[in-house]
């Protein structure tokens, strides 16, 4: 069982959540190129390490949140505070898979 730290509900069984995939910034549709758009839609980083990802608390608070998970150990970093859009900096030097939102 995976315990996902929802910023509102606390640690919850992942069965109460819906995985929304890697967190990445969406290019501006009015100015992006087809290549950039395709990369945004389909080309995931899939690292063996820390990954910023989106979750939806579907059976709990019904809110989306972003959290960092280690894809090898499934360890979660400290969850973001309610209302914040990015995870708290952890200061251990490990890079999330994607840049700033």
């Amino acid at each position: 069982m995976l315990l996902v730290p929802c910023p509102h509900c606390g640690p919850r069984n992942s069965a109460d959540m819906s995985y929304q995939g890697e967190a990445s910034s969406r290019p501006d549709p009015s100015s992006t190129t087809p290549t950039e758009w395709r990369e945004y839609l389909y080309m995931k980083h899939n690292p063996a390490g820390w990954l910023r990802e989106n979750w939806y608390c579907s059976s709990g608070c019904r809110r989306f949140f972003t959290v960092e998970r280690h894809t090898v150990t499934s360890e979660f970093r400290e969850p973001p505070l309610p209302g914040s859009k990015t995870p708290r900096p952890t200061g251990d030097g490990a890079d999330p898979a994607r840049g700033a939102p």
Binding site: C9, N13, D16, S58, S59, G60, C61, R62
Partner: peptide
């Protein structure tokens, strides 16, 4: 109060 799956129903 809390929200969670009860017998696989969001409740």
């Amino acid at each position: 109060t809390g929200s969670a799956s009860v017998a696989k129903v969001s409740s």
